[in-house]
């Protein structure tokens, strides 16, 4: 156990030395949301969001942006690099299994995402007067399940690609898809209904985050027909299923060198 703690501390330090991951994965969602909030009309309640404000409606999408950077960009790139550079191979000659490095990576990625979410929620609350999550436990659960699914897909990408270049290519494709479905590029109320419904079940689950954050207020119901209160269990269950399936396939196919 102590080697895992040590590995996590080292991987954490290495993460902090990657300015791109820290800035875009952790800090950027908050900056972007605050930037949006600097535009007066986006702070005004609007009938488009059921009487809520754009900054509220879009806040979970800002978080999706950061989670995507961490889960399907940073993680597959790092793991593929560790494999390509023989870092996992070197470790497999020591008494410690290289799987522990991957575990440490995931712990660090989870901590970074939690920091990104905490920063976003608190900054939105303090600066833009966005209420704190209505259902904090549901919010945490939706975050963990949705981000877990995203991480599993990130590891799956690293598992099935032969080298860093291909891994980065697949990671970019996946990232674009998740960003689009998560309403990062275009607010979800502008998307066709079918795309919105697909997005409900796509990691990291922007609608579940929205539901848990705002309860049955207008922001959450803007693009959902009948959602109210805590997130729908079906959405969380499907994302949990994606996490388990992607994780299992990745574990099966993963090559250490």
């Amino acid at each position: 156990m102590s080697t895992l703690v040590k590995l996590t501390a080292v991987e954490g330090r290495l993460f902090l030395r990657e300015p791109m991951a820290v800035i875009f994965g952790v800090v950027f969602p908050t900056i972007l949301l605050l930037g949006m909030g600097a535009i007066p009309v986006l702070r005004e309640p609007s009938p488009d969001f059921g009487g809520a404000r754009f900054v509220e409606f879009w806040a979970p999408s800002a978080l999706v942006l950061g989670l995507g950077i961490l889960g399907v960009q940073h993680i597959p790139a790092t793991i593929a690099t560790y494999r390509e550079n023989g870092i996992l191979r070197r470790m497999s000659t020591t008494p410690v299994h290289p799987g522990k490095v991957l575990a440490a990576q995931l712990i660090v990625a989870l901590a970074a995402a939690a920091a990104a979410a905490g920063l976003l929620v608190v900054a939105a609350w303090l600066v833009l007067d966005v209420p704190l999550p209505e259902h904090p436990w549901w919010f945490t659960l939706a975050f963990v399940v949705g981000y877990g699914a995203l991480l599993a897909i990130g590891i799956l990408i690293a598992a099935v690609t032969p080298n860093v270049r291909t891994a980065n290519g697949f990671a970019m494709l996946a990232y674009m898809a998740f960003m689009f479905l998560g309403g990062v590029f275009l607010p979800r109320f502008t998307l066709p209904d079918v795309v919105v419904r697909i997005g409900d079940y796509t990691p990291p689950g922007v609608q579940a985050l929205l539901d848990a954050w705002f309860g049955d207020t207008g922001a959450a119901t803007a693009v959902g027909v009948e959602t109210a209160g805590p997130p729908q269990l079906a959405q969380l269950a499907i994302m949990a299923l994606i996490a388990v399936a992607a994780g299992a396939v990745a574990a099966k196919l993963f090559r250490w060198e």
């Binding site: 290495l14 990657e18 023989g86 870092i87 191979r89 070197r90 000659t93 008494p95």
Partner: peptide, 18 residues
């Protein structure tokens, strides 16, 4: 044996910023 055999394999790097 992993405790008692030290191995240096070719093309084994470390993380760049370690």
């Amino acid at each position: 044996l992993r405790q008692r055999v030290g191995v240096q394999l070719q093309e084994s790097r470390l993380p760049d910023k370690l």
